[in-house]
Amino acid sequence: MTVTLHYDVPSADEYNDLRIAVGWDLSTPEIITLALQNSLFTVTLRQAGQLVGMARVVGDGGLAFYVQDVIVLEHLRGQGYGKLLMDEVMKYLHATAKPGSGIGLMAALGKEAFYEPFGFHRRPNTLRGSGMSQHPSKW
């Protein structure tokens, strides 16, 4: 079955289903809808109308851009679909981000090498310290 690229925003249910399929945490439809509506850029992969992959960019559209939710269902991995999504993300970033902007992402453990061909560097390095995060569910 053919996988096609789209520039659409998935529904909250589709997004949660995709997250469940890859073992990520769920969120409420209200939070997901808000998050997806506030994305700067979203690209999806669909097979027979079903969401099978996606990527999005979040941020302020000026100084800060963040690659988020690069997801491809496991049975489609290794076939170039993740690269296809990232190629579209990078086209958006090259057209939108200006000198002085920062572009970041947090790779899933063990997936760091996937992002290196797109110009992303592991941290810490000689220019930047370790990435850090905080999870509100721990509050």
Rank of each mutant, 00 (worst) to 15 (best):
S39G: 13
D60H: 10
Q50S: 15
A55L: 00
G102Y: 11
V72T: 13
V9C: 12
S133C: 11
I32P: 00
P29K: 00
A97F: 06
L63P: 02
K98R: 15
L73R: 14
L109N: 02
L127V: 10
R122A: 11
V57M: 07
L63H: 09
P117H: 08
F118M: 02
D25K: 15
M86W: 12
G62L: 12
G131I: 06
K83A: 12
Q50L: 10
G62D: 08
E74C: 07
M132I: 13
Q37L: 00
A35V: 00
L5C: 08
L76G: 13
E74W: 02
L109T: 04
H121P: 00
K138S: 07
L127A: 07
G82A: 06
V43P: 12
R77D: 11
Q47P: 01
T28I: 03
Q37T: 04
Y92R: 01
S130V: 12
Q79D: 01
N16I: 12
R77E: 13
A95F: 00
G53Y: 00
V3I: 15
L34G: 10
M1A: 14
L127F: 06
L51E: 07
G119M: 06
S27H: 03
T4F: 10
T42A: 04
S27I: 02
T42E: 01
L93G: 05
S101K: 06
Q79V: 01
N16K: 12
G82N: 02
V22C: 01
W139T: 06
S137L: 11
L84G: 06
M1Y: 08
R19H: 12
T96W: 04
P10K: 04
I103E: 12
Q68E: 14
L36C: 05
V3E: 11
H6I: 00
Q134G: 05
L26F: 05
A97C: 08
T44Q: 05
S133D: 14
M106Q: 09
F65L: 02
T4K: 14
G104T: 10
L127Q: 06
K111E: 06
R123M: 11
R56V: 13
Q134H: 04
L40W: 01
L45E: 05
V3H: 08
N16P: 00
G119S: 10
N16S: 11
G62R: 15
D69I: 09
G100N: 03
R56I: 14
G59L: 07
R77G: 10
L105Q: 14
N38M: 04
R46Q: 13
T33M: 03
H135D: 15
A35Y: 04
L36S: 02
T4P: 04
G53K: 00
P136I: 06
H75S: 15
G104N: 08
M90F: 06
L45I: 10
L18C: 08
G78K: 10
F114I: 01
Q134F: 13
V3A: 07
G104F: 09
